[in-house]
Computed example of a mutant assay.
Amino acid sequence: MNKSTISGVAFTFGLAAVSFILSLLPGLSVIGPLAVAILSAIIYRHFFGYPDAYKKGIQFSAKILLRTAIVLFGLKLNITIIFQEGLPLLAKDFIVILFSIGSMVLLARLFKAEKQLSFLLGIGTGICGASAIAAISPIVKGKEEETALSVAIISLVGTAFAIGYTLIRPFLHLDVTAYGTWAGLSLHEIGHVALAGNPAGEDGLGMALLAKLGRVFLLVPVSLFLVWLMSRKDKDAAKEIVFPWFLLGFIFMSLFGSFINGRYLEIPPDVLKGISTLTTFILTMAMAGLGLSVSLADLKTKAVKPMLLLFLTSILLSGLTYMML
């Protein structure tokens, strides 16, 4: 790493640290550090401009650190639980992914919204929010700006829906297990699922996370399918498609956490918690790097319509998954 790269990484580190602190404040704690980092970076660029001297380091954070966080994120996926208790949910999770992507793509065509941005929002809605968008974006050759915008939009919309779920839960004729399943099948991020599922107690939250983990599990086959689809769609561009090797790291970490840890060696819970926090912080640095690629003018012109379409898709998805219970 040269001095410029190190300075740029340090810059995103500072933005991430500030975002972490701000995310502890009332109101901002609901949307979480990732969305705060995106918004903070966008605001910084608006008032102070893009820091060109740190460009290499910022891009390092937006790309390399982003993929590193996804690899570490694999530790949160316990495959054994999915296969033991969640197989029936996988079929529903698959339907959720198809519906989310299909709805966003169709609505984007009907209302002439940004196609790539809408597709990434469909991916994030169907699978696991920002992490899925970050994994899929390089496969479909998404721009950094599109990735940042889609992450910001899905964080905000997902938070609104998670809060809405907690508000209407007392009025729903659902037991805690059914409510948890509904939240896990329909909400965007794991954090959103945890927020909405927590009021239903341990049983409701456990079921919510199980349903959500099934969608996270499907990230890998969906990614590999898109690699194959992109290569078939444009054979000349197939040579330019870089296989998402970091997904193999994601799979390895998932297998490690599922089959090695606890059987052949024991990672202390405090260490696992520390790794989880580190993963979130690295992802926050990546979001800061992505956010710096977005201008407020672009946010106004490109994000409003996809955000409204995401609201509509999310409402339809909530209705569909409610009927699937």
Rank of each mutant, 00 (worst) to 15 (best):
S100M: 11
W228N: 09
K212S: 10
I168Q: 04
E114P: 02
F11L: 01
A196C: 08
L292A: 10
G262E: 03
F11D: 02
G257N: 00
A200L: 15
V157I: 14
H173V: 11
I79Y: 04
T12D: 03
I97T: 05
G291V: 13
V193N: 05
A130R: 06
L117N: 13
G57N: 03
A211E: 09
G180M: 11
S254R: 08
T301W: 03
E114I: 04
L195W: 05
G126L: 07
I190S: 07
L248V: 15
F217C: 06
L121D: 09
I43N: 04
L106V: 09
D234A: 03
A303E: 12
I81D: 14
A178Q: 13
F252C: 12
P51K: 10
L25T: 07
N198T: 15
I31Q: 01
L187A: 05
K235A: 12
K305D: 01
Y322D: 05
V157Y: 07
G86C: 05
T181C: 02
K3L: 13
F246P: 11
N261D: 13
I123E: 07
L224W: 05
L255Q: 09
I21C: 10
T5Q: 12
I139D: 08
L174R: 02
L90Y: 08
A297N: 13
L205N: 04
A130L: 02
S276Y: 10
K143I: 03
V9R: 01
T284M: 05
K233P: 00
T277V: 01
I64T: 14
G158S: 08
G74C: 13
T181R: 12
G201F: 07
S137K: 12
L66W: 02
A211V: 08
K212C: 14
R232I: 07
V30N: 01
S231T: 12
F259D: 00
V36R: 01
D93S: 15
L312G: 08
H46Y: 07
K212A: 03
S137L: 09
A69M: 03
G204M: 10
K300G: 10
M287V: 01
I81G: 12
L299W: 12
K141H: 00
K302M: 14
G102I: 04
K212T: 05
G142S: 15
L28Y: 11
G319Q: 02
G124K: 05
E266G: 04
G126Q: 06
S223T: 08
L320N: 01
G49S: 06
L290A: 03
L248N: 10
L316C: 11
A208Y: 05
K3E: 14
F217P: 01
F217T: 04
I127A: 03
D175T: 01
G184Q: 00
I260Y: 07
G291R: 09
G86K: 10
G27H: 06
Q59D: 12
V105F: 13
L283S: 05
Q59C: 00
G32M: 13
T277S: 04
T125N: 04
A69T: 01
A16D: 00
